[in-house]
């Protein structure tokens, strides 16, 4: 765990000041005050097949939690449940002890429960800056305020120069950075990043990870990071949750996970 990625001993200790790095006004933002996202006993079945079974996970503002596991382990399904895109067969999702399991994806996003998608899902026929503005107007900012926020977020990911380009015309690396900028503009309290670095080369990955590692301090949000690159996961995460065949097989610090025999067998290999 390097200095960049360590937001203090634990996220729940994060208080107001840490969020102040963000220069934008955050009228209905979290203000960096405590809180918790809790998923308990989540089970999802598709036509009799159990995709995930009894998965529980807490996420606190200020921390980065890694979610790893082999393909088909149910990582994305779990994020779909948290963000409201998939109804859970059993279990509950709560923010600060308020149940949000019945809310639509858009209602959850308004509460600061924000996600990204595999493969970016940009608004391809809008410009780069409009993509980031959509987040601002999505949470109810006026167009001007949304634009200002978008400008800041593009700056944060180093894409200012591309503001006027059509989002469908940018490179994969730029797409990934834009997707993070878009999520940042949502004023997230809990942010789920689904393989944000997929398809990037090493250098691009490093650039993106630098941005992601700053998120907890910059926005005061908790990050749930799905990623296959172990270098990234081990370097950036405070805790790691390991899924295999829909079940949690290990929760722990990077060091604990790395040395766990079941994790090695199921995922890391020898």
């Amino acid at each position: 765990m390097d200095a960049e990625g360590d937001p203090g001993s634990h996220g729940r200790l994060t208080v107001g000041a840490t969020a102040g790095i963000s220069t934008a006004p955050r009228p209905d933002g979290p203000g960096g005050v405590g809180g918790r996202l809790r998923a308990a006993g989540i089970k999802v079945q598709f036509q009799g097949l159990t995709a995930i079974d009894d998965v529980s996970c807490d996420l606190y503002p200020g921390e980065i939690v890694g979610l790893i596991g082999p393909n088909g382990a149910g990582k994305t399904t779990f994020v779909n449940v948290l963000s409201g895109f998939q109804e859970a067969t059993e279990g509950s999702v709560a923010v600060d002890d308020t149940e949000i399991g019945d809310l639509s994806p858009e209602a959850r996003a308004k509460l600061g429960v924000v996600r990204t998608f595999q493969g970016a899902r940009l608004f391809t026929n809008l410009t780069v800056i409009e993509n980031a503005e959509v987040s601002g107007v999505g949470i109810g900012l006026k167009r001007g305020a949304a634009r200002q926020r978008a400008v800041e977020m593009l700056e944060a990911v180093g894409m200012t120069e591309l503001a006027g380009a059509r989002a469908g015309d940018i490179t994969t690396g730029q797409e990934r950075r834009l997707q993070v900028a878009r999520a940042m503009a949502m004023e997230p309290r809990y942010l789920f990043l689904d393989e944000p670095a997929a398809g990037l080369n090493e250098e691009e990955t490093d650039e993106l990870i630098e941005v992601i590692e700053q998120l907890p301090r910059r926005l005061g949000c908790g990050v749930l990071l799905i990623e296959h690159d172990m270098r990234v996961i081990m370097g950036s995460c405070d805790r790691i949750v390991v899924l295999d065949q829909g079940k949690v097989i290990k929760v722990g610090t990077p060091a604990e996970v790395r040395s766990d025999q079941r994790v090695i067998d199921a995922y890391l290999g020898s």
Binding site: E106, A109, F117, L122, F123, G138, I139, M186
Partner: peptide, 10 residues
């Protein structure tokens, strides 16, 4: 442009 991404943007 994208209904899912739009929902995710509240």
């Amino acid at each position: 442009e994208d209904e899912f991404a739009a929902k995710a943007a509240a």
